[in-house]
Design a protein around this nucleic acid. Structure first.
Lengths: 121, 121
DNA sequence: CTAAACCCTGCCCCCAGGGTCAAGGTCAAG
DNA sequence: CTTGACCTTGACCCTGGGGGCAGGGTTTAG
């Protein structure tokens, strides 16, 4: 299959597929005319990458998952490295939520303050 | 004062000051040799921009605050436009926290699922 | 006079692609 | 055989808030 078939099958753009390749996540064959050729397993890989990116992982962080797939597993997240990556991402999200919660409080204080100042004057 | 004096006084880097200028937040005079010259009021502006950026606003979104200062107000956040910007940012943060909370739940589910799959096999 | 310390502009880098382009390949209809 | 539609390729610029570096001009102190 050609790149647009893969992109359509996996629900991403052609541009995204080429980007994944540039990140080392795909290594398609090339036809004589230079066109990239993909196999059915690449659809699974691209879907997985898409899903992981939507969870906020970076392209680099999807590496262990893809390796897990390539190692012959049905699921990308059953390898120890994948579990570690999940836990790291959860910790990251928790940290971010804490930061934003604190930020929210700061903003609310600033807003209240500014409003009070206005009624005072 | 020159750019490094301003940067030191406001607690930012020289690079940041030049970036703020490129975003239209500062319009320094130029000496004959091309050096930028700033007044004491610019220190206030840069401090304000720095504070607002740390609250997660974009450089563009700091515009109303700076205008408020330039209009002669002692505080950048007492103008109606500033209050609106605060509220918009709070809403944005709330949305982001909700997103991340949902994402956190998804990740926790995936992790549990992957762990169970492993003990099962 | 010279060296340090400052200033200038301009370029490349991040991240995950989006947009656009010129060039060339492929396949069907006419 | 040619035209047109559609596909592919690589290459370039863009995002936000600067960091880092290059290569040059300027100023100030010793």
């Amino acid at each position: 299959m050609h790149i647009s078939d893969l992109a359509a099958a996996a629900g991403v753009t052609v541009k995204a597929v080429r980007y994944y390749e540039s990140q080392g996540l795909l290594k398609p064959q090339r036809e004589a005319n230079g066109y990239r050729t993909y196999g059915a397993e690449d659809v699974i890989v691209v879907r997985e990458v898409k899903a992981l990116l939507s969870l906020g992982l970076t392209a680099e962080q999807t590496y262990p998952f893809i390796e897990c797939l390539r190692a012959g597993n049905d699921r990308a997240d059953v390898c120890p490295a994948s579990l570690t990556a999940y836990r790291a991402r959860i910790a990251e999200v928790d940290r971010r939520i804490a930061e934003l919660t604190e930020l929210r409080a700061k903003l609310a204080d600033l807003l209240t303050d500014a409003e009070n100042w206005r009624t005072k004057v």
